[in-house]
Every structure is written in structure tokens, then in C-alpha cells.
Amino acid sequence: MQKVDLIATATFGLESVVAEEVKNLGYENVTVDNGKVMFSADLSAIPKTNLWLRTADRIRLKIGEFKATTFDELFEQTKALPWADWIPENATFPVEGKSVKSTLFSVPDCQAIVKKAVVESLKKTYKTEWFAETGPLFKIEVALLKDVATLTIDTTGAGLHKRGYRELIGAAPLKETMAAALILLSRWKPDRVLVDPFCGSGTIPIEAALIGQNIAPGMNREFVAESWPIIPKNLWRDARAETHDLAQYDRKLEIIGTDIDEDILRVARHNAQEAGVDDQIHFQRMAMNELRSKRKYGYIICNPPYGERLGDYNQAERLYKEMGNVFRELDTWSYYVITSHEEFEKYFGRQASKKRKLYNGNLKVDYYQFFGPRPPRPKQDAPNHSLI
């Protein structure tokens, strides 16, 4: 089967999480750079990675890479790439661009030159002077970084965070890809209770349920490369069939989402229903300071107000103090908090076991991780039949 070079783009700070996901799908020779994870695979990786990657932004097909400090170099080397191997005669092929620390800094000029070069390349194969561009979409990107041009085609379409379940959202929503990353970074296990006391529109609980039941995040959406004639339809059909075969719909989970706003909880319930995991999540109206649990071991993963986007900064600090008091009572639990407040630990009253810098959109945030004790292992001669 044809080999391809793929790039899974990633939010800054999540590259290692995306790389681990790619490796877990069985792909080797994975390399990591700022904002991207690169790997080689066969053609079936385009459907598989689009369907399964939870934390990547999109999957790009790499066509070529070269140094270019002049427009002539950019044109000639782009023209020399095998565009007709991928792009059919009737394709629609717009060009996007970006340039960072490069001699060729004018993005519109670079886009225009790449477009012209691709047209000239396709002319040689299809023996025509004009392309109607009425067919499937092949969105090309020219990315210049320190005078190195990377030419790719987007295989995803709408970003991978668009799972298809979140028709309704609340204020300051957390992207689905980021929510999934927070859960994967926590090393949460599906046999442990998970609580989000600021669940909003339900993104963290829903992503946890998808992970807990091994449901592919892209199972219920479409991808732009599904319309590409170069990828056999059976590859998409087989990849989608595998998502159903591997899903563990019978696994019972204990996931709880609480919020003080009943209106936003209605949105959360609707989103969970759209995702097909509403029977695995209990949403409840509750103030954070009412949080209690009889469970000995559990996880709290949450995205509380930062004070920058919602509400008042001082109000957020008072909330963090209250969180510290409430969470302290759950002294055998592990809890994970994402916030942009640089003095969160001071108000929370405890130093994190680990802190990780991330970006929520364009906002720099820290992921504060507080590790609780590990639960004792069950005795081998006494099998444990309980899931929670």
C-alpha cells in the first residue's frame, strides 16, 4: 500500500500527548516538533488517525519540504512536487499560508506563487490550460519557518475538536481536544469515579466517557479526505467498522458533572445525549462547596473560572480558596485544575505535585496536578467483579 508522510498538528504543549496517541495507534518513527507530530504510514492511516486522535488539531498530508529564500525557488520547487498524484483535474485547491522568521515574509505573495506553481504542475499532467475547481476540496498550506517551506494538504476539514456532539455551548468553552488532553494527562482509569464540579456544557465529562468506553472521537462526523478519489472507499469503510468493533459500550462508568447553572446543565445533558454517552454521566445542579463523596479514591478534573474571561479576578481568587478547603476533605483523591491565574497555588493553599504549561486557545494556562495515593491492589485470590 502507498506510503505517506503525515503531520498531526497540535496545540502548543500537547505535542507529547499527540505523539503518544499516534504511537498507541501502532505507528513508528514518530518525531515531534513545535506544534506538530510527524510520522510515516500507509494510506489507511489517513482514515484511522482522523477517526481516533483525541488531542490533535488536524491531519495534514505532507507533499514536500525544501529551503526557499526567493520567490523563484518557491515557485520552481513547488512546481516540481507530485501534485497530480493526489489532486484530480476537477479538484478545488485553495492555498493558505503562514511565515515565521523567513525571508519570504509576505504570506499573500507566497500563497499566490504556490497556487500558480501547482496549476503549472497540474497542466503538464492534465493537458489543460484552465481548471474549473468544482470537485473535491484539497486545501493546500505553504508554511515557511526559518526559510524552510513545508507544503501540505489538509485531510481533516473542520478541526478534529469538532466531534459533532456539541451543537450547544456555554460561555468560554474548553475545546474537546483540550478536554481530552486533560483527562489523558491525568492518567484517569475508567474504574475510578471522575467529577467535574465546573462542568459547564459538559465537555470534560463527555470526553471522559468517550475515553472510558473507547469510543473513537471522530466516529460520528465526516472528513474532507473521504471525497478524495485517491483513497479507496473501503479504507474509510473498514476504519469506521473498526471504531464500532473496538468500542466498549457495555463498560459502566461513574462520571459526575456539577454546576450551579441549571440552564447550562440542560445544554450539557443535550450534548451528552448527542455524543451517545448520556447514560454514563450524572449531571447535577450543585455549588462547588457542596461537593462530597463516600468514594475513597477518585479524580477531580476541572476548568474553573479564571477571572480573565468570566467574572471578576478577585472572585476567582476567593473561589480558589474555597476549592482548596473542599478538595482538602477528599484527601485520598487526585485533582487536576487548569487556570491562567499564576498564583493559583497560593490561594488554593497547596503546591501542585506537577505543573504543566499549556495554551487554552491563545491564553497561556497552567495545568496543576495534585496526585493522591494509589488505591491498594486487590488480592489476587479474591477477584474483583466491581467496575466502580
Score class of each variant (00 low, 15 high):
268 A>C: 10
268 A>E: 07
268 A>I: 05
268 A>L: 07
268 A>R: 02
269 R>C: 06
270 H>P: 02
270 H>G: 05
271 N>Q: 02
271 N>G: 01
272 A>Y: 02
272 A>F: 03
274 E>K: 01
275 A>T: 00
275 A>P: 01
276 G>K: 00
276 G>Y: 01
277 V>C: 04
277 V>P: 01
278 D>N: 09
278 D>I: 08
279 D>S: 15
279 D>N: 15
281 I>V: 12
282 H>E: 15
282 H>V: 14
282 H>N: 14
283 F>M: 12
283 F>Y: 15
283 F>C: 13
283 F>P: 03
283 F>G: 08
284 Q>H: 15
284 Q>N: 15
284 Q>P: 10
285 R>D: 12
285 R>W: 12
285 R>F: 12
285 R>C: 14
285 R>N: 15
286 M>R: 15
286 M>F: 11
286 M>Q: 15
286 M>A: 15
286 M>N: 14
287 A>I: 07
287 A>N: 13
289 N>K: 11
289 N>A: 12
291 L>Y: 10
291 L>K: 10
291 L>Q: 10
292 R>M: 13
292 R>Y: 11
293 S>Y: 09
294 K>F: 14
294 K>L: 11
295 R>G: 07
295 R>N: 10
295 R>K: 12
296 K>R: 12
296 K>P: 04
296 K>W: 06
296 K>S: 11
297 Y>S: 05
297 Y>T: 03
297 Y>F: 10
297 Y>G: 05
297 Y>K: 03
299 Y>F: 14
299 Y>E: 06
299 Y>K: 02
300 I>D: 03
300 I>R: 03
300 I>Y: 07
302 C>I: 05
303 N>K: 04
304 P>C: 06
305 P>W: 00
305 P>F: 02
305 P>D: 02
306 Y>I: 01
306 Y>M: 01
307 G>P: 00
307 G>E: 01
307 G>Q: 00
309 R>A: 03
309 R>L: 03
309 R>F: 02
310 L>A: 00
310 L>Y: 00
311 G>P: 02
311 G>W: 02
311 G>I: 03
311 G>S: 07
312 D>T: 06
312 D>H: 04
312 D>V: 06
313 Y>T: 08
313 Y>W: 06
313 Y>Q: 08
314 N>A: 13
314 N>F: 09
315 Q>Y: 07
315 Q>E: 14
316 A>H: 01
316 A>L: 01
317 E>D: 08
317 E>S: 09
318 R>Q: 14
318 R>E: 14
319 L>D: 01
319 L>I: 05
319 L>A: 04
320 Y>N: 02
320 Y>V: 03
320 Y>A: 02
320 Y>D: 04
321 K>Q: 15
321 K>W: 13
321 K>G: 12
322 E>S: 13
322 E>D: 13
323 M>Y: 06
323 M>P: 06
324 G>F: 08
324 G>C: 11
324 G>S: 10
324 G>N: 08
325 N>W: 14
325 N>S: 15
325 N>F: 15
325 N>R: 13
326 V>E: 14
326 V>P: 10
327 F>E: 07
327 F>P: 06
328 R>S: 15
329 E>D: 11
329 E>G: 11
329 E>Q: 11
330 L>E: 07
331 D>M: 11
331 D>I: 06
331 D>W: 10
331 D>P: 08
332 T>H: 11
332 T>P: 04
332 T>I: 09
332 T>W: 07
